[in-house]
Simulated assay, not measured.
Amino acid sequence: MVRTVCGDDIANKLELIPLSDNTVKRRIDLMSENILKHLVHQVIAANKFSIQIDESVDIQNNAPLMVFIRYRSTDDFREEFLFCEPLLTSATGLDIFNEVDGFFRKNNLDWSTRAIQPEFYSVLQDVIQIVNFIKARALNSRIFHAMCDEMGSQYVNLLYHSDEKLSQGKIATFALLSEFLEDSTKVTLNDLKLLLQKYLNKLQLELNRYIPENVELSKYNWVRNPFEVSVHEVGEDICGFQEELLDLQASQVLKDNFSRMCLTQFWAQLKDKPIVSREFENALLPFPTTYLCEAGFSTLVVIKTKYRNRLDAQHDMRCALSMNIHPNIEELVEYVQHQGSH
C-alpha cells in the first residue's frame, strides 16, 4: 500500500525499519507453537516413541531439563526437540518424571503408565522422597547413619526390599509397620507378605519386559539385513512374523528399495507388514542419537548469554533445533497482524 501511495523510495526506507523486540518475540513464539502443534500430531499418529532426557545448569544457575523425542514418521525415523523447562527446585528422578508427565498431559500425549495398587501409592510417594533426600548427598547418608546409632536401631543403613527378606518376615526395620501389625486384628503378616509378593512379582515382570536380561543380539540380525537371514532362525515365538518376513524377502521391489535407502528409511516406509513393523519399531526406537541433548545445551549457551540471562529460551530453541518440522508460514499469516498495536 505504501509503495502504491508514496512510491518505491519511501517503501524501501520503511522496509529497513526493524520490528520491535516484543514483536520479534511474539513471532518466534508463534512459530515455535506451530512447530510443536505439528510435532504433537505426528507423535500421536506414530503411536510409539522414545525420549532422551538430560539436565544441566545455565548462565543464571537454573537447571534446564531438555527432552528430545524419537518416533517413526511416514518416510524415516525422526528425532526432534520436544521441550526445555527449568527444574524449579531439585533434580531428582521424581522431579524429572513430574515435569515430563505434566508436558505430556498438557499436550494430550499418551504417557503409558501402569496402575499401582492404592494401598501402596501414598506410601510409595513418601518412600521416594525420603530415599531421594538421604541418597542425594553423602552428608545426608552419614547423618542418617548417626541418627540410627543414637536411636539404638539394629539397622543403620538404608535397606531395600528383596524377596528373600520378605519371605523370612524380617520387617523389624520398619518400626511403624511392625507396630501396626502388632495392634491390628484384621491384617496379619501373611496377608501383608502375599500382597507385597504379588505386587513385587508384577513389578519384576514389567522390568523384565522393558529391560530384558541376557538378550541374544543375533535374533535382531534380520533388522540389519532382512534379505540375508534364514526365516527359520528368527521370530519362531512371534505368531505370523515368519510369514510376513518370507513375503518381504520374496518382493523384488522391497529388495531394490533396501539397496538404495538407508536402513531407517527402508523400515519406516514399510507399510503392509504390521507384525514385522511392530518388531522393528521395538528394535530401533529406543536408540536416539547420543549427542542430541549435548547439541541442545550448546545451542542454549549461544542463545541465552549473560546479556540475555532472563530470556525464556524454549521457543527460540525449538525454532533453532527443529530438524524436520518447519513453521507453516501460510497458516500463521492468516490470523496474525503484520504489526501489532503497542
Rank of each mutant, 00 (worst) to 15 (best):
174 F>P: 00
32 S>I: 02
95 D>Y: 04
331 E>K: 04
334 E>G: 07
314 Q>N: 14
244 E>L: 08
12 N>T: 04
208 N>F: 14
185 T>V: 12
209 R>S: 12
15 E>H: 15
85 E>I: 15
317 M>W: 03
44 I>S: 07
269 Q>C: 05
267 W>L: 04
341 S>Y: 08
337 Q>D: 15
204 Q>K: 06
222 W>D: 02
168 Q>C: 03
11 A>P: 01
206 E>A: 07
209 R>M: 12
165 K>V: 10
118 P>I: 03
143 I>Q: 12
168 Q>H: 09
261 M>P: 04
110 D>W: 04
256 D>H: 15
138 A>R: 06
75 D>Y: 13
185 T>M: 14
35 I>Y: 01
96 I>D: 02
153 S>N: 15
104 F>R: 00
263 L>A: 06
76 D>F: 09
6 C>G: 09
249 Q>G: 08
4 T>W: 14
322 S>Y: 04
255 K>V: 11
221 N>C: 11
168 Q>F: 09
150 E>P: 04
251 S>F: 15
29 D>P: 05
22 N>K: 14
257 N>F: 13
212 P>M: 09
187 V>Y: 04
27 R>T: 15
239 C>K: 15
189 L>N: 06
157 N>G: 07
93 G>L: 08
56 S>M: 14
182 E>S: 11
69 I>A: 01
71 Y>G: 01
66 M>S: 08
105 R>T: 11
95 D>A: 05
315 H>L: 07
191 D>F: 15
162 S>A: 06
286 P>F: 05
253 V>N: 14
116 I>C: 02
339 Q>C: 12
293 C>Y: 03
103 F>R: 00
39 L>W: 01
162 S>C: 03
183 D>P: 02
206 E>M: 10
194 L>C: 07
31 M>Y: 04
200 L>H: 00
197 Q>S: 12
66 M>K: 09
215 V>M: 10
64 P>R: 02
291 Y>H: 12
188 T>P: 02
214 N>I: 00
179 E>R: 13
45 A>I: 07
199 Y>K: 00
163 D>I: 15
331 E>F: 12
112 S>A: 10
143 I>R: 10
7 G>D: 07
136 A>E: 10
109 L>P: 01
71 Y>L: 01
309 N>F: 12
201 N>Q: 14
241 F>V: 04
222 W>Y: 11
17 I>L: 15
276 V>Q: 00
108 N>K: 13
118 P>N: 06
25 K>P: 01
35 I>H: 02
47 N>L: 15
283 A>S: 09
58 D>E: 14
114 R>K: 09
202 K>Q: 11
241 F>T: 06
19 L>C: 07
6 C>P: 00
218 S>G: 13
114 R>G: 01
139 L>G: 13
206 E>T: 08
280 F>R: 00
212 P>H: 11
132 N>I: 00
214 N>Y: 02
27 R>G: 05
103 F>D: 09
129 Q>S: 13
272 D>T: 02
166 L>V: 14
4 T>F: 14
17 I>D: 15
299 T>Y: 11
298 S>M: 09
85 E>N: 13
14 L>M: 13
62 N>I: 05
38 H>G: 03
303 I>S: 03
334 E>R: 07
285 L>T: 10
